[in-house]
């Protein structure tokens, strides 16, 4: 089974990449992806309410897509209601974009939402950010108890990723930017191989680079299977895919 923990669809005002849903579905078809977590870029870049509506509708129409809700905590108004609404609508996780939207991890409106999301039993997806941000995630967000998936940690901060995972067993790492030889294995040894999650960041970037890293990593068969599917299910709090 192949599960992609990091996809999106929609439009972009800032680049000419084809982010459309047909493009995403074509990528998933091309690579025989069984399930993908996805979010609407409208929710990230413009309005999380209508963006989440779009995500939920698209995922209902395409059952192999699992909806990830997003909230911009700067708005404050309606944020808590959106946690409840999206949880009831079947969203499997909440994803935040402090890097794109310009707010820090230590940000009371965001921390309040994290506490609430942990109470409803859903996981949280966050960007790795600059030096120290993953440490803050481990110290300030992880204690609420929700599982956390850190997205987009590259070689410049994979040491921090591994150290935070070792301290916080509820922190997982999405690996589309882990592009250095031996680093997946080093992170697995430092923390645990069960905290490494495959994601491609399609269709923003090419699918194959992150995929081939998983294929060629010095994993045991069990570790590879977990990397490509089992670990993201554990992150989501599910025993198995439907």
């Amino acid at each position: 089974m192949l599960i992609d923990a990091n996809t999106s669809f929609g439009l972009s005002a800032t680049d000419d990449t084809d982010y459309t849903l047909p493009r995403l579905l074509a990528v998933l078809d091309q690579h025989s992806v069984d399930l993908a977590l996805t979010y609407s870029r409208r929710g990230r870049d413009y309005d999380f309410l209508t963006g989440n509506d779009e995500t939920i509708a698209v995922c209902r129409a395409n059952p192999r897509l699992w909806p990830v809700a997003t909230i911009d905590p700067r708005r404050l108004i309606g944020c808590r209601d959106e946690v409840t609404r999206c949880a009831e609508a079947g969203c499997v996780a909440f994803r935040f974009f402090p890097d794109v939207q310009g707010w820090p991890i230590v940000f009371r409106p965001f921390l309040d939402l994290c506490e609430m999301i942990a109470e409803v039993g859903l996981p949280i997806i966050l960007p790795a950010g600059g030096p120290g941000q993953q440490t803050l995630i481990g110290e300030r967000v992880a204690p609420y108890g929700a599982n956390i998936l850190i997205v987009g940690a590259g070689y410049w901060c994979n040491g921090e990723t591994a150290a935070v995972m070792a301290h916080c067993p509820n922190v997982f790492a999405e690996c589309h930017l882990v592009d250095t030889p031996g680093t997946l294995e080093t992170m697995g040894q430092h923390a645990s191989f069960e905290q490494l999650v495959f994601g491609s960041n399609s269709p923003e970037v090419a699918f194959e680079p992150a995929y081939l890293m998983g294929v060629h990593a010095d994993f045991t068969p069990r570790q590879r299977e977990a990397f490509f599917a089992g670990n993201v299910l554990r992150f989501l709090g599910r025993e198995a895919a439907p």
Binding site: D179, T180, P181, G182, T183, E208, P209, A210, L212, H216
Partner: peptide, 9 residues
């Protein structure tokens, strides 16, 4: 970088 990643590009 790992050639596996770049070969993907």
């Amino acid at each position: 970088l790992d050639p596996a990643f770049v070969l993907g590009s």
